[in-house]
Design a protein around this nucleic acid. Sequence first.
RNA 1: CGGAGAGUGGUGUAAUGGCAGCACGCAUCCUUUGGGAGGAUGUAGUUCGGGUUCGAAUCCCGGCUCUCCGACCA
Length: 413
Amino acid sequence: MRQSSFFIRTKKEEIKGEPSLNAQLLLRGGFVNKEMAGVYSYLPMGLKVLKKIENIIREEMRTKLGAQEVLMPALHPLENYKATGRSEMDVLFHTDLNGGGKLVLGQSHEEIVVPLLKKFISSYRDLPLGVFQIQTKFRNELRAKSGILRGREFLMKDLYSFHEDEECLAEYYERSKEAYHSIFNRLGIGDRTYLTFASGGTFSDYSHEFQTITESGEDDVYLCKECNVGINEEIIEENPCCPSCEKNKNELRKERAIEVGNIFPLNTRFSDPFSLTYKSKNGEERPVFMGCYGIGVSRAMGAVVEILSDEKGIVWPKEISPFSVHIISLEKNEEAEKIYQKLIDAGMEVLLDDRDSSPGEKFAESDLMGIPVRIVVSEKTLRSDSVEFKKRTEKEAELIKIEEIVSYVEQNI
RNA sequence: CGGAGAGUGGUGUAAUGGCAGCACGCAUCCUUUGGGAGGAUGUAGUUCGGGUUCGAAUCCCGGCUCUCCGACCA
């Protein structure tokens, strides 16, 4: 992509009245546009990041959990929520059909997925089954804040699993933890993301959250660094010690964290209201056991920005960076174009700054955007038939001969 | 949802009852070219609806929106 024709504009100045770090950097870097509190447009670069996160999640859902992707609607009949007793939730957005039918905007999809799967599950032979989607959720937050960390409209992956019994659910539930750890590792926030014990809310006795340690979070968790687990403050009084090593509350570290994922054993909480049952091997009609597993996709993107940034801007991890290489051409030159072509031919995603701007502006913008590798092509570097190679995480640049640049980038990316 | 503050060009701001001004951005031209350059000439604005007044960005009422504190948060 040539920057001269790229639909993007960065901002030098701090954005007024926007205390959230992820919002500052994403807005200034031209990744998103804020339409209103908690409602954002994703611009080309921001969307690229979002899609990469989505694809990591898709891959892990398929390979580790054998889940199948679907896409369910955002418009839900209110009736289904009456059936589950959730019609009075205050985060529900309500709307009407022209004919008078009452609808809500989907804030989660139990009320859709259960009636849907009722049409396909009738025998133990149909189980177990995992279906997931990546879809926009709507929650009428009374106070949206923290940039894309807490929105009224946000992208979420939700997986629902269906099982013959509790044991089978438990086995799947355990595997989902591995899939989640793998996802957060690939997003570059794995070392700060802890499996955290939490209350089951209205669904079950317990649940697990994936909490990423950051000051911008809204939850307090007690961490056991040795066992790599946390306990949400909401249940610390009933469970005042580490579930694995029995260390007590005082020995755990209290930290601020953002919930990037959560998993719940739903058991028959939602199968019952819709009579989702199956015929067992010996002909009995039994309720289907369910689990649900969420990841805030856009929230995870915000968490990455919060954690992986420095005073100059974002530092994207390579797997989700919008581009892998940023070529900066000082003084328009042919050589930058050639290197750009060569790297693209080698299969890389490259952004070429071919605009006629000052060097300082280009460097500052490049740091703000946070692409992992920067290559500068200028008269100065061309005098020695070289270009300058610098990682976003490093201070010093090095000169690399032009004929070696493709292989050098491949090895050092 | 309770409390507080605020809405002026694309962005940030000034004008407190009497000529809407400045900076950034954007456009054109000239100069400049290794850490968000300089000059010239342009461009574009009072959140919406009522009210008071000879006259409203400014005062009053209402709506909408934003920010902060709290509550809430499958």
